[in-house]
Design a protein around this nucleic acid. Sequence first.
DNA 1: TTGGAAAGTCAACAAGACTGACATAAAATC
DNA 2: GATTTTATGTCAGTCTTGTTGACTTTCCAA
Lengths: 165, 165
Amino acid sequence: MSDSSHGGESLLFLTDEQLRKGIEAMYFAYRGFTADPDRILDNYAYGRAHHRAVHFINRNPGTTVNNLLSILGVTKQSLNRVLRTLIADGLVESRVGKRDKRERHLFLTEAGTALEQELSNAQRDRMRDAYRKAGPQAVSGFRQVLEAMMDPDMRRHFNMIKDSN
Amino acid sequence: MSDSSHGGESLLFLTDEQLRKGIEAMYFAYRGFTADPDRILDNYAYGRAHHRAVHFINRNPGTTVNNLLSILGVTKQSLNRVLRTLIADGLVESRVGKRDKRERHLFLTEAGTALEQELSNAQRDRMRDAYRKAGPQAVSGFRQVLEAMMDPDMRRHFNMIKDSN
DNA sequence: TTGGAAAGTCAACAAGACTGACATAAAATC
DNA sequence: GATTTTATGTCAGTCTTGTTGACTTTCCAA
């Protein structure tokens, strides 16, 4: 504690007020984060649940239902309802597994990829603007804090998607 | 672009993959962010809507219903249902305005303050841990990016609560 | 005094989460 | 080979939290 400036600083900045502002920043920012996709989804009579499914199927093509389940942290009944409509609407394809025929592997169709693009373009635009305003160093800190805030299970999933960054 | 290292960097780091990882980080971190309060709320048969109401009434004692409405961005019917149960359960007190008797000013009772404490302690603990792991500089960046991500209306609310930081 | 804003209420509805029960097929194990 | 476990799907019902629409009461202000 009596060592260089760093030690003192790391105690001082953790005031109750700082933490509360962090909590509120998280809340308001998340609203912004979801606002653009939500508007788009309204046009398709889909919701956030569909967005999440489409997002992670795109990021992990061929993922099984079970894997998606553990990423999304919902019940299979809940996910199934979403997948059923996406498959019926021709956005997602479900293929029986070759090694294990019990498993279903999920893929986006062309139409599914198109929706994913539309949604993620909007979300990336906002993210890009925020990154630009804040600058590269801020982005690094942003990512560090978010990662530290995750539950270990979610962090595992986070780091497993693609080859990380 | 041919100037010092900074100019090049601010273009390079905004790859599609970086932005997608930012989006996923936001998603997984928000789950962690809400996990602890959600567990506590289960014990009281309350939900996130109750948490939000209690949080912002605590931060802005005496706030009117209308002001709370614009902070939370829900319909008055939705908020009213939540407030009704909180008032009925003795966590929130609604006082008729003195200047304008149509307005109701909202305050936490002792019991309401106790619940707010329990919830925000849990949430601050996680925030504090994340801040400690990431360090002061990361926290600054975290806050900058989040603020840049907000919708202008929300940013206004964010900066209006208390005397900011 | 009348119009409109603020607040509240009632009703109906939808998304999206949940639980529980049950079905089927296939893999794994005994 | 029989049994158990796993993966998935489905039906039914519930809960929270959001929505819209219609309507009332209160009361400030032009």
